[in-house]
Nucleic acid binder design. Structure first.
Lengths: 106, 106
DNA sequence: AAATTGTGAAACCAAATAGTTGCACATATA
DNA sequence: TATATGTGCAACTATTTGGTTTCACAATTT
């Protein structure tokens, strides 16, 4: 059973849940009201998200509030870094080409 | 058959392929030399990556060179934007708290 | 105390996935 | 022309996945 952030955000419902609870904690019932699926299905997604530490729970009486562990999202950002370097370099190269063309026009 | 970038980068082998061909185009044979899997398996991954436009092919004789379409990676970056705003705000709030403590110490 | 509500977990199922094996086909080399 | 090489694709398999149904249990309300 693989369980990492990339696998977690692969599912569109899970991405929607993440967005939904990014700003405020919500209960499984409240979350599932926003989707055309059962509470149990959402519950399963929340378990997966919890297992890879993208989400944390907070019990309040019989209700459990789920919220996003925003710092975990930075791991995706960190992975993107290696490519960011490349696309920025390509942009700079394009910039260089453009300024060369500009000079030649003079 | 779902086919989007998030599903594409969910597989660790595909993420490794992406990193491998990010800087230079490579043939399926050369790519599969880097993994403990068959050429056919890599070929399948390349097909998935091509289908969601993360990778482009360039035929050269009987060889086909695959390379990363770096700008497509920006889509993930774009999706992260909504969370980046949150984690930057949280950081600023922490900053505010810290400077308040500093003031109180004076 | 009895009924209701909010929840997680197990059992089950259909569909998707990653991988393998075997093949076809085009390009290159002998 | 015959053989070797680089490749994609189809068929098959084991495993994983997302979803549903059913149940158990604890907290709340009546």
């Amino acid at each position: 059973m693989r369980r990492d952030i990339f696998q977690a955000i692969a599912d569109p419902t899970r991405r929607a849940i993440i967005t939904l609870i990014a700003l405020q904690a919500m209960t499984p019932n409240a979350i599932s009201d926003n989707f055309h699926t059962t509470r149990q299905s959402v519950s399963k997604h929340l378990r997966i998200l919890t297992e890879c530490e993208l989400v944390k729970q907070e019990q309040q009486g019989r209700e459990i509030y789920y919220s996003l562990q925003i710092q975990k999202m930075k791991e995706i950002d960190k992975w993107l870094d290696q490519f960011r370097k490349i696309w920025e370099t390509r942009f700079n190269q394009l910039d260089k080409v453009l300024s060369t063309i500009k000079k030649q026009k003079k």
